[in-house]
Design a protein around this nucleic acid. Structure first.
Lengths: 275, 275
DNA sequence: ACGTTTCCTTGATCTGTGTCAAGTTTGGCA
DNA sequence: TGCCAAACTTGACACAGATCAAGGAAACGT
């Protein structure tokens, strides 16, 4: 299926610039074949779901959870696959169960800026909006816990636990977006990189996972990091090398590394409290 | 009560070392004299309120409006006055009735980035959060329609028209923040200025006001524009001069100007559709 | 195992915007 | 009315980061 969606993207861009065709294909695929290349993980029981504590459903219990359990569908995407196109109407909302996805905007001439990073437990979609304002792309293999939009919106109306959490999530995103505006507008390349890694540390410590000795993995390629930070991939590479040669980071391979001096890193980031 | 909180914020800033003196003056004015210089406009009847059609109360009618009418208090601030301090607990929420306010974040060394611009009908404050994450400053004389936070939050719980609109507003802000991330991360100085003026045009055409022949007023100083766009004030000045000498803008004085060629301006902005 | 491709690093150079420094205009106030 | 401070403009120069270019290392398909 990943092949198909890519094909769709292709057609779309050639013929329409944006809209109809790929939707049709997407629909066919999802309805018809299911995810052939991207294995459809069988739905995990909500009770055993690894992202339950932070996801949109975190406040729901008992009967509410049973309903969600019934209408949810897991869906997987291969790394690089496009999950949603800008301007497309969005027929589902979802939580990220595993993997990393990016929200991106692009100028006509191809310059792109990432406007959000979706890590496990993050939410895609908004009540009352059916168009996405950006592209959503799987940065790694991604599994989503999807709900058809209409049923989900109906459920929202009668489930305060759900809508409350959703408002919270939206406001958190707004705060994050504003922090990022400060970064994009005023921080140096060095500060940007430090802030980014600092954020990875914070985020990974939140996931009650095995805090395996400060070992971390970059969820993005150099180019994607550049798009997230408003830099070029060369500058990202140089700054990472600088942090490495200063003994602040140590790389095991291109993607995984250890933070030898978290304090120094945070000082460089320019943010105040460790929060 | 606002006086006390301001006092607290004041001490904090003096001791932490960030732009002390003007705060002292500000305190004297606000605390000592009350808002003498900033005349408290007598409350306008909600029915006659100029921002009703877009503000948080826009969906309310009849009984709901009566309640709001009863708990609202107008409050005015002089240009330059600080309305809220970052980290301060926020004991009211408000709609901007007239004037312009800015949301700003500052790095330790004084670099600042504006993360939002509040024009008439825009809303300050969020349900479920009592701390502000940025400074709010009156860019011009400002009048706010304020509600004490607690009563307002209680009202939210029983007034779907209000909470729906509030969610909408939060999501609009999120979209705006993301557009701004693209601007900050990827646009050139020239494109930034063009986008900014383009936004002013759009915003002013929304206010059903007298569309007086494309005459517009910059709501911000050069330095404030620079902070909004992630530039320096010199660059802002140069880019405005460039647009002037290219016959795209014509200035009547430093703040008010006419757009001679809106099409060219929009093309420069790099955004796609005129929306 | 091999070639091919993709991703990453590093170097050399260029350029847009920041920085520093005068001037100039404007508006408020005595 | 004229002075003064604040706001703005303009110029000269510096520099962070972009761009252009070359090469290296890991991943992938055959």
């Amino acid at each position: 299926m990943s092949l198909c969606t890519r094909g769709a993207a292709f057609c779309q861009h050639i013929f329409l610039g944006r809209s109809g065709i790929n939707l049709l294909l997407l629909l066919t695929i999802c309805g018809g074949l299911g995810d052939m290349n991207a294995p459809v993980l069988s739905n995990i029981k909500c009770g055993e779901c690894p992202i339950r504590h932070r996801a949109v459903c975190s406040r729901c219990e008992g009967a509410e959870l049973d309903i969600l359990e019934k209408i949810k569908v897991y869906r997987s995407f291969k790394a690089g696959e496009q999950i949603l196109w800008r301007g497309e109407s969005m027929d589902f909302v979802a939580s990220v169960v595993s993997g990393v996805a990016t929200l991106g905007k692009t100028l006509e001439d191809g310059r792109t800026q990432m406007v959000g990073l979706l890590l496990p437990s993050d939410f895609i979609g908004r009540p009352g909006r059916d168009r996405v304002e950006f592209d959503v792309i799987a940065a790694s293999d991604v599994t989503l816990c999807c709900f058809d939009r209409k049923p989900f919106e109906n459920l929202l109306l009668v489930t305060p636990h759900l809508s409350e959490r959703l408002v919270e999530i939206a406001l958190d995103e707004l705060d994050a977006a504003r922090d990022w505006m400060l970064l994009l507008g005023r921080k140096t390349a060095r500060e940007k990189i430090a802030t980014f890694i600092d954020m990875l540390i914070r985020r990974s410590s939140l996931e009650g996972s095995t805090a395996q000795n400060d070992a971390l993995t970059l969820p993005l390629s150099r180019e994607e990091i550049a798009n997230y930070l408003g830099l070029t991939l060369e500058t990202v590479s140089r700054q990472l090398s600088a942090l490495k040669s200063q003994g602040i980071l140590q790389f095991k391979d291109r993607r995984s590394f250890e933070v030898l001096n978290p304090k120094a890193l945070h000082d460089i980031s320019g943010d105040d409290a460790p929060r």
